[in-house]
């Protein structure tokens, strides 16, 4: 543990990873609680996978076409918001086979991204790093970008708390009160999309869905109100990210998978203990 603190001091990338992880945890806890209670983890997962399409396109423009301003994270953000709106529309208006359409988009988004990576000269490593995260790639500029997005997501997520709570609990009644329920549902999906992008560098788009849902699921065992769930989820997420980095760094393991395994283990333990507790 002392080694870890020393490493944070000495290795800028590790420091950046920790800052990004702690910042993103706030968004994860707030948005993840909405996603879990509204039961749209599957839709969140589809959005996060579609993000690869945008990352691939931006990476291609950046490396193969020499557009240096076109950072893959910008591509990720654009793709995330676009896919959130499209998938949201499908889930609102496609009466039948909603799941089929969403799975198809999930795969198509990834396929587009992989083709762009294939057409970009050089090593295929970057594609893997976006899929599963690579903290070595985090720059100071990324930290600033993440901080700004984090503030936006948390401000919107908490600012509209009463309406988002009502939409998650009972969208029909909320619509009857004159609230534009579909608009708030799309807002929630856009916040989910931005939260996914926050963590692209740390855990990657495939693993991020676990970090969106597991802290909120753990918190669900203790919370009696949605804001309590958010608070506990934020703390859990911070704990998972910090211990994940602390464990993976000295062992020279990739941090993303280690963070996710810790989150999964804690979730399983909490679920088992509360189950046994209730039986007694």
């Amino acid at each position: 543990m002392i080694d870890f603190f020393r490493a944070i001091h000495e290795a800028p990338f590790l420091r950046y990873a920790l800052i990004v992880g702690l910042l993103a945890s706030v968004s994860l806890g707030v948005v993840g609680s909405y996603v879990v209670t509204r039961r749209i983890t599957y839709i969140a997962a589809a959005i996060s996978h579609c993000v690869l399409g945008g990352i691939g396109a931006a990476y291609y423009l950046n490396v193969a076409q020499g557009l240096k301003w076109c950072d893959p994270l910008y591509g990720a953000m654009a793709a995330a918001l676009l896919s959130a709106v499209i998938i949201g529309m499908v889930s609102l208006y496609a009466r039948q086979r909603e799941d089929t359409v969403i799975s198809a988009m999930w795969a198509v988004g990834m396929a587009v991204g992989l083709l762009f990576f294939a057409k970009t000269p050089g090593y295929v490593g970057p594609a893997m790093s976006y899929l599963f995260g690579d903290i070595l790639l985090i720059s100071a500029q990324d930290v600033w970008l993440v901080a700004v997005m984090d503030v936006v997501v948390v401000a919107l997520g908490l600012g509209f708390y009463p309406k988002l709570l009502a939409v998650c609990f009972d969208d029909e009644f909320t619509e009857l009160r004159g609230v534009k329920v579909k608009l708030y549902y799309l807002l929630l999906l856009c916040l989910t999309a931005l939260t996914v992008v926050l963590l692209v560098r740390v855990v990657g788009i495939v693993l991020v869905i676990a970090l969106l849902t597991l802290p909120a699921a753990v918190a669900g065992h203790f919370a009696q109100r949605l804001w309590q769930m958010m608070l506990v989820a934020v703390l859990c997420s911070m704990l998972f990210v910090t211990t994940g980095l602390a464990v993976s760094y000295p062992l020279d393991l990739p941090s993303g998978p280690v963070i996710i395994l810790i989150a999964g283990a804690v979730y399983l333990a909490v679920a088992l203990v509360t189950r046994l507790w209730r039986r007694h």
Partner: peptide, 10 residues
Amino acid sequence: PVSVMDIVLM
């Protein structure tokens, strides 16, 4: 996770 008051306020 929602309280009675949260619901009535809706």
